[in-house]
Design a binder for these strands. Sequence first.
DNA 1: AACCGTTAAGTTACCCGTAACATAAACGCG
DNA 2: CGCGTTTATGTTACGGGTAACTTAACGGTT
Lengths: 345, 345
Amino acid sequence: MDKKNNKNNKVSLSQVAEAAGVSKMTASRVLRGEGGYSEKTRVKVMAQVDQLGYLPNRLATVFAGDKNSTFIGVSIPDLGNEVFSQVLEGIDRKLGTFGHQSVLGLTQHTLQEEEDWIKTVLSWQPAGLILTGRYHSARASDMLRNAGIPIVEIWDLNSSPLDMSVGINHFDSGFDMGRYLVGCGYQKIGYVGTSHDTANAATTRLDGFCKAVEGGGGEVTRQLCLHDTATYYPGYYGTEQLLASSKDIECIFYQNDSMAFGGLQYCGAKGLEVPKDIGIAGWGDLPVASVLSKRLTSMHVSHLKLGQAAAEMMMARLSDEPVEPCRDIGFRLIPGSTVRNTKGR
Amino acid sequence: MDKKNNKNNKVSLSQVAEAAGVSKMTASRVLRGEGGYSEKTRVKVMAQVDQLGYLPNRLATVFAGDKNSTFIGVSIPDLGNEVFSQVLEGIDRKLGTFGHQSVLGLTQHTLQEEEDWIKTVLSWQPAGLILTGRYHSARASDMLRNAGIPIVEIWDLNSSPLDMSVGINHFDSGFDMGRYLVGCGYQKIGYVGTSHDTANAATTRLDGFCKAVEGGGGEVTRQLCLHDTATYYPGYYGTEQLLASSKDIECIFYQNDSMAFGGLQYCGAKGLEVPKDIGIAGWGDLPVASVLSKRLTSMHVSHLKLGQAAAEMMMARLSDEPVEPCRDIGFRLIPGSTVRNTKGR
DNA sequence: AACCGTTAAGTTACCCGTAACATAAACGCG
DNA sequence: CGCGTTTATGTTACGGGTAACTTAACGGTT
């Protein structure tokens, strides 16, 4: 609050150097600790660093040319979905251990928001980008290709990624769930989810699901809540609508666990017993599912691990280590007890 | 992939200018659109911008001196706690509408992590900081004071903030809950929470809670899970330990809803009926609580709104609008049905 | 045609570090 | 003691924009 220096009242390296009676360059060497100075000088300089409360301006370092920033742009659809907040936690924790930071971008599941964010964040010269999803607008793809920085596309495993990819095969996970439900004897199956303008992982999952169910002689009735969030309430009302229009549904598969919770609540409210009267299956295996007295039938994905893997791939690439460009995190079906588990009842 | 320019293969303004046959300065003026050039020139320059795929380097602008960056450093204890991911969502969404970005820092509830992060993030010249909590290490406080940028301390309302503060009064919220439970006729009350090295909002809440209960003639038995996360499982085992050592507990107050869920699960597993045999109260009113058949007695705080308010205060300060330095978001007790609600039974 | 005001453009200097190069001081050794 | 070698320190230039200032071009008036 006292030392007004130049325009922004920040202490610069030259000021430290001047105070210590050495040149800027010598002070810089001391600060970086890469040798080429005497102990006496080191002490003098460090004394002034403490005295003046000098904080290096990393902008200048990056700006100077060859050095990279420690920003990693991370785009996430939304944090209301616990799945993504876990992914982000995995990413940021891991990046932190390497001294890097996440610059967050919430895209609200739209490619336009993503494009705008990419444009802005690239202007800050990030060291790399981690993006949720494999779909990007044409202009975004152009910018990404020209950016010349490492990019990890997460969530939806991508066999031909822009650069690197880590996640799971959503088609397969939907397929496995479909096969499991058919194996439990269900034929008339409903799906409750949300719908967005653009293709996304949930769509891919549904495709796999339908293929398995139809391949097994069953049929899928879809109930899509347009432009709503994939949360509890849409799950509740989606279930209501689905059952109102198709009375013979035996089992419902939901876009995610939160929506399945809503479905369970609806069934409870209407006196439908689960799984006796109707089967319920979610996706994602949220930790909070443990609150339920019955284990929810779901699909487990290690979201934290996914985030960590993304950060690891990024850091490996940044230190020029060899990186396998595609990494499958895998999933695991949780049989649970909200669908009947013997064939034909 | 074709045009290798200087060291980093990025297109610079000089290149655009040269290609357009004008000076750097003219190109700069066109890009900023603040006049002083002819239409013919504008077209020439913009054609080259598109042609070369030029993206401005905002680092240079900030670096040049007087302009601020659009980074806002945001420190959050952890994202496993749904409460904080909602706060972050509120912050980032609101910042986004102002063209600013969050640079995330997960402090894992430790002041040392926070200090390290502050040091790093300050070196990137952020426009401001949003920090969770009112407690900071001595060195962190020094750096923050000297940084000369707006700072919003959130979560724990602070009557003498470093700069600005928004949140709730945790002491009062604990006090209100204590008074409510005593009013329901409970006297022997347990508390299950976690314990950290440093004071935090949960501690403050417990202080208020104890004051109310003891003031009402009751007593509080504490069961602290040392250094554990405030989540479901510690809630379960904390309840087990508490009830094993103090058999006459009538009601348990938890650090948060997740822990209370664990407690509910434990009670269910042991055949204890809620609220007939024992009362259960949480804190935070998580959306997922709706999954329960009974409404959990809890304390509602609008986390999203809190985050938005923090971002709004930050942006107001950055545009030199007058800002009320302390803002109370308030809380609301949710009576629920996991405690008995008539006095004395 | 000489003059002046306005607009369009160019020049110079600077922000804060660091690479690259240059120099000075200290040291080792025959 | 002189010379080569190391070690310590200083000097210069630069990166990508922008503020401040200067110069050139244009348009209108008398």
